[in-house]
Amino acid sequence: MKNLFLLFIAFGFTQLSFAQNESTLDKTTTVEFEKTTIDYGKIKKGSDGVRTFTFTNTGEHPLKIYNIYSACNCDIVYKPEGAIAPGEKGEIKVKYDTKKVGPIVKTITANTNTTEKLIPLNLIGEVLPAADDSKEDEEMKM
Rank of each mutant, 00 (worst) to 15 (best):
I124R: 12
E116N: 14
D39F: 05
T30D: 15
I68Y: 03
Y66V: 00
T107S: 06
T98I: 02
F8H: 06
T114A: 07
K89N: 13
S47M: 08
G87W: 06
A131H: 14
M142K: 15
A131Y: 08
I43T: 02
L118E: 10
G46E: 08
E136W: 02
F55D: 02
L7W: 03
T30A: 10
C74H: 04
K35S: 15
K89V: 12
K44M: 11
F11S: 14
E81I: 05
A130E: 11
T14K: 02
I38Q: 05
E32I: 00
T112G: 05
K45F: 00
K64W: 04
T54K: 13
T109Q: 13
N67I: 00
L63E: 05
N67E: 12
K45E: 14
G59V: 03
E60S: 13
N113Q: 05
A71M: 07
E138G: 15
V101M: 07
T52S: 14
K100E: 14
E88W: 04
A131L: 06
E88R: 09
G49A: 12
F18Q: 08
F11E: 00
K89Q: 15
G90D: 14
E34M: 08
I9Q: 10
K117F: 06
P103T: 13
E88M: 07
N111W: 13
E126N: 11
G46S: 09
G87V: 07
D26I: 00
K89I: 05
G59A: 06
V31S: 02
L118V: 01
N122L: 02
V31Q: 03
